[in-house]
Nucleic acid binder design. Structure first.
Lengths: 223, 223
DNA sequence: GAGTGGTCTAGACCACGAG
DNA sequence: TCGTGGTCTAGACCACTCA
C-alpha cells in the first residue's frame, strides 16, 4: 500500500508534466487541496515538499504554491555550460585576501591578495546557477585568467549536497533541492594554481559530463 | 525565535561531535526523547530528520536511532573508490533484457540480453554506496568486462539528486540526503558500448574527482 | 508480545503578503 | 484585516525487529 503523500505527489506531478497545470499557476490553498484529496494538511504538505524538492513547485510564504516553469537541462562540459542563447551571466568582482579553505585550495599563504569573480548565470528571467572564481591578484591580467598559456591540468572535485541558505536564496531554489558542487582548480606548467572555482549547479536543471580517452591499457571498474 | 526542531538538532549534533554520544550508541526512543525535550513526537522526529540528512544518525525501523560512525569521505577517481581496507562489495548478478533507458545507454536493440551486476559497497557494517553495472551478454567473459582490451573512451555523466525510495532503503540513508549519481559508459575502439554503469554515491560520504591534462591550448572557463 | 520507528489525523497558533 | 503558508501538538494506527 503506497503512502498517501506519494500518491498525491504523483497525481500533481503528472498534472504538471502533462500541462494540465500550467507553469506559473497558483495551486489551491493547502487546506483546500487537503479537503480535495481527503487528507489532513500535514499529509498534503508532505506531498508538496516532495514536489518542491523535485523542483516542480515553488512555495511562497503568505502567497501560495506555484507551478514552476519547465526547466531545460543544461550540461557542464569542459569548464562551461552548453551554450544557450537564453543564458547570460552577471559578474561582480571583489578584492579579498586568502583565508580559510581558499589557502590550501589555491596553495597560497594566508592573506594573499585575491580577486573574486561572483558569477550568477541567468536563464531568461530566473537564476540558473552560480560560480565563485578566485584568482591570485598578482597573475591577474585584464581578464580573469581563463585562457592563460601554459595551462597544464584541471582538477574537478564533484560533490552532491543541499544548498546553503545563501545559495538557496541566490538561486531561488528550495533548501531540499540537491545541488552539484564542483570545485575546480587549474594548474600551470610550473605547478602553480592559476585559478580556483566553486560552481553550484542545481540538480534539477544541470549535470556535468566528463570524458576520458584511454591511450594505453587503463581500466574503468566498479564503484 | 529559532525553531524547536533546530535547537534540538543543534543540541544532539554537538553531543555527537563532541563525543558525548559515542558512535554506534542507540539514542533513547523517540517518545522518550520527545518527553526529555518537552516536545511532541513529530517535532522530535523533524529534528532527527535533519541529523539523518546530515549523516549524523542512522534510523533503523523497529530497532532505534543510532549515532552514525564518523564518516570517512571517500573519493571516486578513475572508475573506483579510494581503496580502503574497511570496504567490501557484495555483488548480485541478474540476467535481463534491454528496455527503457538501457537501450539508448548501451546502444543496443530492445530486448538485447544483458547481465546486471548489482554491487552494494559496505564500509564496515553499514552500506556505503551502490552501483548497477550492465554488460551485453554476448561480449561477457567470465568476469565483467571491466578490463577489456581496446577500451577507447569512458564518458561519465554526473548529476545531483535525491535518492529513490529503493536507493534510500538499500543505503539506509534519508530520502533528503543528496546523492551523486554517475552514469558511466565505456566504449571500445569499434564504437561499441562494452559496459554501462549507474553509480549512487551519498553526498555526505563520497565525492568524485576528475582530472584533465591539457596538451595543446585548451581552456577552462566559467560555469 | 513488547518495543521500536513510520505514517497519518484534526486541529491550534504564529508569520508573512497584499489590499 | 484577511488569506496564505510554517510550525507544533497529542494523540491513533500500522510495520518492523527481536526475544
Amino acid at each position: 500500500m503506497p503512502f498517501l503523500r506519494d500518491t498525491i505527489a504523483d497525481d500533481l506531478r503528472t498534472q504538471i508534466t502533462t500541462g494540465h497545470l500550467a507553469a506559473g499557476t497558483r495551486l489551491p490553498s493547502e487546506p483546500r487541496l487537503a479537503a480535495q484529496y481527503k487528507v489532513s494538511t500535514p499529509t498534503l504538505r508532505n506531498a508538496l515538499a516532495l514536489l518542491q524538492a523535485e523542483g516542480f513547485i515553488e512555495k511562497v510564504h503568505g502567497k501560495g504554491n506555484f507551478v514552476h516553469r519547465p526547466l531545460r537541462r543544461l550540461t557542464y562540459t569542459e569548464g562551461r555550460l552548453t551554450p544557450d542563447a537564453d543564458l547570460h551571466v552577471t559578474i561582480r568582482t571583489t578584492n579579498l585576501r586568502a583565508r580559510g579553505d581558499l589557502i590550501p585550495l589555491l596553495k597560497v599563504p594566508s592573506r594573499t591578495p585575491l580577486k573574486e569573480f561572483f558569477c550568477l548565470t541567468h536563464q531568461g528571467e530566473s537564476p540558473h546557477s552560480l560560480a565563485r572564481i578566485y584568482v591570485p591578484r598578482d597573475l591577474e591580467s585584464a581578464e580573469p585568467a581563463w585562457c592563460r598559456p601554459g595551462l597544464e591540468e584541471t582538477r574537478e572535485r564533484v560533490t552532491a549536497r543541499l544548498p546553503t541558505p545563501e545559495e538557496a536564496s541566490s538561486l531561488r531554489i528550495s533548501s531540499t533541492l540537491a545541488v552539484l558542487a564542483i570545485t575546480r582548480v587549474s594548474i600551470d606548467s610550473t605547478g602553480r594554481v592559476t585559478e580556483a572555482a566553486r560552481l553550484v549547479l542545481p540538480g534539477n536543471r544541470a549535470d556535468a559530463l566528463f570524458t576520458i580517452h584511454h591511450t594505453t591499457e587503463e581500466r574503468g571498474t566498479e564503484g
